[in-house]
Amino acid sequence: MPQQDNLSDSNSAGSDMSVFFLSGILGLEAMHLWISIPFCSMFTVALLGNCTLLCVIKTEASLQKPMYYFLAMLAVIDLVLSTTTMPKLLSIFWFNFREISFNACLVQMFFLHSFSIMESGVLVAMAFDRYVAICNPLRYATILTNSVIAKIGLAGLARAVLIMVPLLFLLRRLPFCQSHVISHCYCEHMAVVKLACADTRINSIYGIFVTLFIVGLDLTFIVLSYVRILRTVLSLASKEEQLKAFNTCVSHLCAILMVYTPLVLTSIIHRSGHQVAPHIHILMAIFYFIFPPMMNPIVYGVKTKQIRDRVRLLFRGKNV
């Protein structure tokens, strides 16, 4: 089989320390072309949806609010995550272009993991936004000013960079003297670490620490925000007021589920590696980087009347 031969050739290229090879979806190589169809479709929808969302938020005066600024941040992050993974993935599926330099691998890894951390931070910021809007509505405009929103965005960026830079330095110090075939479709941290012919315990421990720290801390803040929101909503007099208040949180809750569910499942599958087929793990990991970017604009477009109306006018070619 040609693809197997290519992987064998890549093993023999192990003397070139600067070149690595991505395996694609192990066990499903013969189906790569068919698998590319849904992933290419989701990538196209993600690009169109997030670009449209950014255009609408920029041009619609009624959307110049904190909630939509955070949504714009989420759209930018989703665009980066999907464009960092999908072009290389599709080149493997369509043209069998598996080669990637070590430096390019590190760059891809940095963008994937740092922007995933930023996405988690933006979801926390959006939870805080809903908490202020529902629990302290009279102070909403004074608490979430443009300056505060900018500082939150910069803090999220700084946190992601400060966490990821040590991970890259730890990886660069490792020698790779055996196989250079990464058993994945992209440069996933642990998949690269497994190729090192040295003690990788520090890398593994730091990787686990980062995952537990980010997911644990951010989910704790989100849960605490929604506990306060739930208490406030239940204290409202009428059912209509309760439904109206809670309805403003539905889109954000959907975004949380779409981001954290694949992340948790991928982590569980990764920890029970020998019990799960490799292609399941790889497909779930790819799903994490393409499904939320595709669905977030759809969910917010369906649930937000201002976005829905503006998109309708935009595609009709009318001026507002």
Rank of each mutant, 00 (worst) to 15 (best):
Q3C: 14
N6C: 12
G14Y: 06
S15D: 10
M17A: 15
S18L: 14
F21R: 15
L22E: 09
L26W: 08
G27S: 06
E29T: 15
I37K: 13
C40Y: 10
M42K: 04
L47Q: 11
L48Q: 03
G49N: 04
T52F: 08
E60N: 11
Q64S: 06
V76T: 09
V80A: 06
S82P: 03
T83P: 05
T85D: 06
P87N: 11
P87I: 12
P87M: 10
F93H: 14
W94Y: 14
N103H: 11
F110T: 04
S114M: 02
I117N: 03
L123M: 06
D129G: 06
L138V: 10
L138T: 12
Y140D: 01
I149A: 05
L154E: 09
I163F: 15
I163S: 07
L167F: 10
F169I: 12
L170C: 11
L170P: 07
R172P: 06
R173P: 09
L174W: 12
Q178T: 11
S179K: 02
H180V: 07
H180Q: 08
I182R: 10
V193L: 09
A198N: 13
D199E: 15
I205T: 15
V210K: 01
V215R: 08
R228A: 14
I229N: 08
S235F: 06
S238D: 11
N247Q: 14
H252R: 05
L253T: 05
A255W: 02
A255G: 05
Y260H: 04
P262K: 00
S267L: 09
S267E: 07
A277N: 06
P278C: 02
L283Q: 03
A285L: 09
F289D: 11
M294F: 02
M294I: 00
I307R: 00
I307F: 02
I307Q: 05
D309I: 06
